[in-house]
Design a protein around this nucleic acid. Structure first.
Lengths: 192, 192
DNA sequence: CGCAGTCCATACTCAGTCGTATGGTAAGTC
DNA sequence: GACTTACCATACGACTGAGTATGGACTGCG
């Protein structure tokens, strides 16, 4: 983290390509992940790329794996430290609502679900998160069957919100409106 | 509707191309909408296509417009006939849950939100539906501010469900599980 | 019958992108 | 100081898919 941040005249590593690929995906989607375009972004040519990766798909695969591993567990592990189980879900909602960059990547990957490589990754990540929600709902007092469906509903609402207000830029919520929406979600989805 | 249904040796019209394009989008997404592939599907060559449309984008545009106009208003108009306003939302949920083909198209379009042509169409359709939900929630007794947020939450849950269980094929719900999920949605989102 | 308009086939051009082949340069290593 | 290794540039081949040019076939109409 000391000298490889800036795109100066440094040599590149495979990790640099993966990070740049993830950023490009967040900005323009998986479809825009072209080898030469990414090389131009990094100030080099294709020759560099094909030294680090065997193919374009290999880069995408490595990038997705990196995202799947490093993308989660910051929030989830913090939430589990909260003592009162009934306080975890509201706190989770509010913390997630204040993120930004992780949602960008996730939203970009949602738009790339026609690509066979991203489907299993998104399936694993989404089901893990849903399972986390399910246990949280159970700890909050919901019956097992209700907890499962409530977790599905909650995560579906999250995904749909990303598509509608993030990708689609639909209602263009103001900051206050967004906060009110989050509080409405909490009041509606979380058992009192 | 008498002789233009079957793909026999008939001549084609622009409408035939648009309908075939919509079906192909529903099956394989917008990215798979290629001129020659669609021509093979219809049993002709590109020469036919470029007589009816100036470009590939023109076909996509026309197809999206057709979908936007003819895609809705079947269910919505039927729902408005229900006398008791408090019965409309549960009935809407259950009817929508029993559809299939419209969801296919909508889900395919959700995956194509990186294409600039589909964004405004999806924005219009989605906001119209959300507004319909908002008035329904108001008629069901919710306060205006709550009705708006509840409508957003409901439609986001719908969109997210499509992505997760349709496109992603996530939990692979059985028929009974799906019905239970719908009833859980009704119990959670609709005021008693 | 002949002609014009409609619809389609064939054969191209052109641009974008993946992947390869090969040579070049800077930094270490003995 | 020669030699290896890591990284990159350049040039090329091949494929894919959009769009064009042009001619042929069928149909209705005078």
């Amino acid at each position: 983290m000391n000298a490889t941040s800036k795109p100066e005249r440094n040599r590149l590593s495979a990790e640099d390509w993966e990070l740049a690929a993830l950023q490009l995906i967040a900005e323009q989607g998986v479809g825009a992940l072209a080898v030469e375009a990414l090389a131009r972004r990094l100030g080099v040519t294709k020759g560099s790329f094909y030294w680090h990766f065997r193919t374009r798909e290999a880069l995408l695969q490595a990038t997705l794996e990196r995202w799947e591993q490093y993308g989660e567990r910051e929030i989830i592990s913090q939430i589990e430290l909260i003592a009162d189980p009934r306080e975890r879900l509201p706190e989770l909602f509010r913390r997630v609502a204040h993120e930004l960059q992780p949602h960008r990547v996730y939203a970009a990957l949602l738009k790339a679900l026609d690509h066979p490589l991203v489907v299993p990754v998104m399936a694993r990540v989404s089901s893990r998160r849903t399972e986390f929600l399910e246990t949280a709902y159970r700890q909050a007092g919901l019956a097992p069957a209700d907890a499962l469906n409530r977790a599905r509903l909650t995560y579906a609402a999250y995904v749909g919100f990303l598509q509608l207000n993030f990708t689609l830029g639909l209602p263009r919520l103001s900051h206050d409106e967004f906060d009110a929406y989050v509080e409405h979600m909490i009041a509606t989805l979380i058992p009192a």
